Amino acid sequence: MSSPSSLVDWDLAGRTARRLLRPGPATTREEAAAVVRELHEAAALAVSHVEGLTGLHPVPGGPEPTVAVVDRPGWVDANAAGMSALITPLAAALQEKQGRQSGRLATAVGSRVTGAQAGGLLAFISSRVLGQYEVFGTDGRLLLVAPNIVETERRLGVDPSDFRLWVCLHEVTHQLQFTAVPWLKPYLEAQMGEFIEATDLTPDLLRERLGDVVRSLSDAVRGTPTADDDAPQGLMALVSDPAQRAVLDRVTAVMSLVEGHAEFVMDGVGPDVVPSVVTLRKRFNQRRKGRGPIDRVLRRLLGLEQKMQQYADGRHFVSGVVAQVGMTGFNTVWTGPETLPLKEELTAPEQWVQRVLGVSPAVHA
Rank of each mutant, 00 (worst) to 15 (best):
S102Y: 13
S102F: 10
G103W: 06
G103K: 07
R104Y: 12
R104M: 12
R104A: 14
R104S: 13
R104H: 11
L105I: 14
A106P: 09
A106T: 11
A106M: 15
T107C: 10
T107D: 10
T107Q: 13
A108W: 15
A108Q: 07
A108T: 04
V109I: 08
G110P: 10
S111G: 05
S111K: 05
V113E: 13
V113W: 00
V113R: 03
V113G: 02
T114A: 13
T114V: 11
G115W: 06
A116K: 04
A116M: 11
Q117A: 13
Q117Y: 12
A118W: 13
A118V: 13
G120D: 06
G120K: 14
L121M: 14
L121E: 08
L122F: 06
L122N: 04
L122Y: 00
A123I: 09
F124T: 10
F124Q: 10
R128Q: 03
R128D: 00
V129E: 06
V129K: 01
V129H: 15
V129C: 10
V129R: 07
L130C: 04
G131P: 02
G131M: 00
G131V: 05
Q132N: 15
Q132I: 15
E134T: 12
E134N: 08
E134R: 13
E134K: 10
V135D: 02
V135G: 07
F136M: 13
G137K: 01
G137I: 06
G137P: 01
G137V: 07
G137R: 09
G137A: 02
T138N: 06
T138C: 03
D139G: 14
D139E: 14
D139I: 12
G140T: 05
G140N: 07
R141P: 15
L142P: 03
L142A: 03
L142N: 06
L143S: 11
L143R: 07
L143N: 13
L144T: 05
L144N: 09
V145K: 02
V145N: 07
V145F: 04
V145P: 06
A146Q: 11
A146E: 04
A146W: 08
P147T: 00
P147E: 07
N148Q: 06
N148C: 08
I149C: 08
I149D: 08
E151I: 15
E151F: 12
E151Y: 08
E151T: 10
T152L: 14
E153Q: 15
E153K: 15
E153H: 14
R155M: 02
R155D: 10
R155Y: 11
R155E: 09
L156R: 01
L156T: 08
L156M: 12
G157V: 08
V158K: 09
V158Y: 12
V158T: 15
V158A: 09
V158R: 14
D159E: 11
D159R: 02
P160Y: 02
P160M: 07
P160K: 05
S161R: 06
S161M: 08
S161C: 03
S161Y: 01
S161K: 04
D162S: 05
R164I: 04
R164C: 09
L165N: 01
L165Q: 12
L165F: 07
W166K: 12
W166C: 04
W166E: 11
W166Q: 08
W166G: 03
V167F: 00
V167I: 00
V167R: 05
V167N: 01
C168T: 02
C168P: 03
C168E: 04
L169M: 00
H170Y: 01
H170C: 05
E171F: 09
